[in-house]
Structure formats: structure tokens, C-alpha cells
Simulated scan of single mutants.
Amino acid sequence: MSRIGRKPIVIPTGVDVKIDGSTITVKGPKGTLSNTFHPDMIIGIENGELTVARPSEDKMHKSLHGLTRTLIANMVEGVVNEFKKELEVNGVGYRAAKQGKDLVMNLGYSHQVIVPEIDGITIDVPAPNKIVIHGPDKQKVGQFAAEVREKRPPEPYKGKGIKYVDEHIIRKEGKAGKAKK
């Protein structure tokens, strides 16, 4: 049995879960998420807990068991406490600002980089060098943060660019550090 798959998911107060066949809708204080899972997975609610079971010991069912449980747990977690990713903008003259629903960044290009906010995602810019992306859907938050980081990934020589707050950039020495013969 999958160790993760067999753990029940506790449904917190204020969260409403509806199961319609293989589609699950989770409604909470931070939003509503809906997802369709593999029809073979057995999803049920009993005593305020969601359980996921698998019909057989097939390799496919084994792999879907833990995945389904984790995706549902992330949905429940997201509608209660939003997921967030923090990005840091490093470099002389590099900065970010919020104009309406758009994220406007100066990243050393000859033009400003403008990224519009998408549905289900909220962008905050508490400081000119800090961007906070949050929302109830973990996958959307991570994907959007990766797309923002992609606009100017950090480079290894000076560390300039957009990086995650907890990311460590491995630095290189450059031409001066080269050994002479």
C-alpha cells in the first residue's frame, strides 16, 4: 500500500468538498478549485476525511494512488492557505513595479518587460526588488513564477537576474580567475 496514498485528508472547517464521479470541487475561503482525476481511483468522504483507494495492485494504479491523494491535499491546502512563491530581482537598475494588474519590470533590456496577471494568481510587489506571487492553485503559482523568472534568469558571474528567494546561485570566477601557464 502507498504510504502517502493511504493517509486520509482532513477537511478543515469552512471547506466544502463535492465529489461528482471523478471530478472533485473544493470550495474554501481563498477560492474554489476543481479537478478531474483518473476514473479508476476510489475517492470517498467519511467522518470529515477524504480517502483515496485503488482498485487493484496494477503498476498504473499504484502510481496514481499517491499522486491523486497529493493533488487533492494540495487543493484543500490551497483554498485554506494560499501557496506563494517569492522572487528577488538582483542587478543595478533592475526593478519591478505593479501597474494595475500588470507586473512591469526593468531588467536591463532596451524596453520594459510587462507580464499581465492571470486568473487565480495575485502579484504583489512589496519592494522594487521583490515579487510575491500567490494563489490557491499550487501548479499555477509555480508555473507563473517560473515564467516570470524566465524573463531574466540569474547569470553565474555577477548573479544579476530574477531568482527565487531560497535559490542559491553558483558563482563562476570569470576571465581573471583563469590559471596562467
Score class of each variant (00 low, 15 high):
141 V>F: 05
121 I>S: 07
98 K>S: 02
161 G>A: 06
26 V>K: 01
88 E>N: 07
75 M>V: 11
2 S>F: 11
12 P>A: 03
45 I>G: 05
54 R>A: 10
11 I>K: 06
122 T>Y: 05
25 T>W: 04
123 I>L: 12
57 E>G: 11
48 G>M: 07
169 I>V: 09
139 Q>W: 05
140 K>N: 10
170 I>C: 02
149 R>K: 15
22 S>P: 09
105 M>Q: 04
91 G>W: 09
46 E>Y: 13
73 A>H: 13
139 Q>K: 15
3 R>S: 14
161 G>E: 00
135 G>L: 05
43 I>H: 04
108 G>M: 10
128 P>W: 13
138 K>E: 11
39 P>A: 01
27 K>V: 05
58 D>Q: 12
22 S>D: 07
100 G>E: 01
65 H>C: 06
74 N>A: 13
151 K>W: 01
107 L>N: 03
174 G>L: 08
161 G>F: 03
66 G>M: 01
115 V>D: 02
66 G>C: 02
9 I>Y: 09
32 T>G: 02
129 N>G: 15
35 N>A: 11
42 I>D: 03
23 T>W: 05
104 V>A: 06
91 G>E: 05
63 S>D: 07
52 V>W: 08
179 A>Y: 13
112 Q>F: 15
129 N>F: 12
176 A>W: 07
47 N>W: 10
177 G>Y: 02
43 I>V: 14
59 K>D: 14
135 G>M: 12
150 E>M: 13
172 K>I: 09
22 S>I: 03
134 H>D: 03
76 V>I: 08
113 V>E: 09
45 I>W: 08
110 S>K: 14
56 S>V: 09
45 I>R: 05
42 I>N: 08
